[in-house]
Simulated assay, not measured.
Amino acid sequence: MSDEILSNPKSERVKRIASLARKKERQAHGRFIVEGPQAVRELLIHRPELTETVYTTLGNEAWQSEIDRLASDAGVRLERATGEVITAMSETVNPQGVVAVARSWGGDVADVLKGARLVAILHEIRDPGNAGTVLRAADAAGADAVIFAGESIDPFHPKVVRSTTGSLFHVPVAVVDTLADAVDAVKTAGLSAFAADVRGADVLEARAEGALAGPIAWVFGNEARGLSEPDRALADRSVKLPIYGAAESLNLATAASVLLYETAFAQRS
């Protein structure tokens, strides 16, 4: 660890790190930022080889000693910085005193699907909070991979990374150009593709048939438009969640969480 404390929020290094909030800069440098003690902790525990540098304030925060130890154990460079510098590096208005720079990765879709039984495909998901929440739910449900397809948001967007609360570092992630590429890949890997769509059959039918017990890749569409007819045609079947109350609909992240868990329950029963 360097004894120097970074104190100039307008330095070139700080500007370079802050620029990683932009997709173009992330792609150009192959780096992204991880903010907050929980996400940085998970990065250091599960993907230390990707961690380039950790920047923290010098204080008595509860997480300080653990982050220091994890960085030291992983051989990761640790730098102290003022709160102003951390704020300048961060995308959040009120950062929590720690930022890491990590190398992004592009998992080959065929590799991440080897042996997979539960997969989430995000097609044209634009909201970073939704994307991160679905990835977190997939992690919690024991999914084997998450695929970002088409014009979906970049999985390394700072808001996506934050909303996964570390799950980005637990689950293999791949990015593909089109939904057709994603569906072809999961079918080649031996999974059925199920489209989550309000025009599909009730999930209780699929449950009763035992269809949820097999290897499944769930396709989740755009928050506003859902899946188009050609998109649905790529799937083996379309499934919806019933609405028993007066709610007009469920949002994407909630529906995805329920369907992923329904499948996880079926596969484990």
Rank of each mutant, 00 (worst) to 15 (best):
T87P: 01
P37S: 04
D144S: 01
A145I: 06
F156T: 09
L212A: 04
A140Y: 03
V98M: 04
A246E: 14
I67M: 04
A201T: 15
S257A: 15
V40R: 01
H46C: 13
R207G: 11
V85E: 07
R16H: 09
F148D: 09
N222P: 00
Y261S: 04
T53A: 01
H157Y: 11
D177G: 14
T188W: 10
I121D: 06
A174G: 01
S11W: 04
A182E: 12
V173S: 05
E52Q: 10
A110R: 14
A247G: 03
I147R: 02
D108V: 12
S7V: 13
A143S: 15
I121L: 10
E229I: 08
V173H: 01
A174D: 07
A196I: 06
I45D: 02
K23Y: 05
E124Y: 06
P158E: 11
E262I: 01
R69M: 08
L20A: 13
E91W: 12
A247W: 12
I216S: 03
G36S: 06
V85R: 08
R117S: 10
A233R: 10
L44N: 10
G129L: 10
G75V: 11
A21M: 08
D139N: 14
A102C: 06
R69K: 13
L50H: 13
T165Y: 11
G59T: 03
E4T: 15
R207V: 12
L70I: 04
A131K: 06
T164W: 07
S65P: 08
G200R: 08
K24E: 15
A255S: 11
N94K: 13
L122W: 08
R225F: 11
E248M: 05
N130P: 02
R126D: 09
T82C: 09
L20D: 10
P9N: 11
A138Y: 01
L78S: 03
R77A: 10
L122K: 06
A264C: 09
N222Q: 09
E12S: 10
T164N: 08
A195Q: 06
F194R: 00
G132E: 11
K24Y: 06
L58T: 08
V85Q: 11
D108Y: 06
V146K: 06
S11N: 00
I153W: 03
T51A: 15
A224Y: 02
R268P: 04
V219R: 05
V40Y: 04
A143V: 11
V239D: 07
I33T: 14
G129A: 11
E248P: 04
V34F: 09
L44A: 08
E205P: 00
Q64V: 12
Y55K: 02
R26S: 03
I5C: 03
A211G: 03
A255H: 06
R207E: 12
E151D: 13
A255Y: 02
A217D: 07
V34L: 00
L43A: 13
S257N: 01
S11Q: 01
E84H: 14
A253K: 00
A208Q: 14
E209G: 15
A256P: 00
